[in-house]
Simulated assay, not measured.
Amino acid sequence: MLLLLTCMLAGSPAVAGTQSPQQPLTQAEILERIDRSASRIESLQCEFTQTKELSLLQERMISHGVMYYRQQGGLLRWEYLAPYRYTFILNGDRVMVQSGGRTDVVETSGNRMFREIARMMMNSLTGRCLTTASDFEVQVTVQSDCWVAELIPRRREMEQFFARVRLHFDPERQLVTRVEMIERNGDSTVIDLKNMQLNTTIDEKVFAVD
């Protein structure tokens, strides 16, 4: 389960407002804006670059791929294109993994851990996880060009995988542009999202689970 997750894969002052005189946004206001933006996401597709750092080996692994998400039906396709081919598809209660010419299908309905991981992936991409108090303790800070939400897991299922998760948001679009996952052993995974297309039509075949 950890291998699958690591393969993959919004109380401090905030950003200035748009009116004069400029007023800083509170954490609650930032979270409200992110939640409002997340509620408008019907579909999302983008390219991504993932950087995996192994603390013990002092090794860096970089991969590239594409992601497709559709809110209706809980659909997600996470596909690595280089330097290897690997595809993860979440379609409702079913997950399909394709790697090395092999295809495996798993029913998430009977696996609580898998359901939690799938839910976290979907919610992190949209920012919906920030308003679920039972999942994470959330702290928002502001950098020069983004909002950063640091999430400390509260659920035992997530605690055993991650020490913390950081989500970087574009303040103008309130969309996630970077996901950082820091594991308890010191390893980290950073996913940068780019060329995002919001609420476009995505072919049903993209999410097909055979």
Rank of each mutant, 00 (worst) to 15 (best):
L2N: 15
G110F: 02
L25H: 13
Y84I: 07
R173K: 11
N123R: 14
L56Y: 02
G100S: 10
A10P: 03
G100L: 05
S12L: 11
E59F: 02
Q19G: 11
L44T: 10
S124V: 08
V179K: 06
L2M: 07
R128N: 10
I41G: 05
P153H: 02
I89N: 08
R102L: 13
T200L: 07
L193V: 04
W78Y: 15
T51W: 00
L54P: 00
L31V: 04
S144L: 06
W147D: 13
R77D: 11
V66C: 02
Q50V: 05
L90Y: 05
R166Q: 12
A38I: 03
L76I: 09
A28V: 08
R70H: 06
R102M: 11
T132Q: 14
L167M: 14
E116I: 13
M8C: 10
F161R: 02
W78S: 07
T126R: 03
M158D: 03
M122Y: 00
E150R: 12
R115C: 01
I34A: 15
N91C: 06
T131M: 12
W147C: 05
I191P: 08
W147S: 01
L81G: 00
V105I: 15
G11V: 01
I89Y: 06
N185K: 04
S20R: 06
T26M: 01
E42Q: 12
A149H: 03
V142R: 09
T108K: 13
C146H: 12
I182M: 10
M122V: 09
M96Q: 15
D170H: 01
V106D: 01
M113K: 08
M122Q: 14
L76C: 01
C7S: 12
A118C: 14
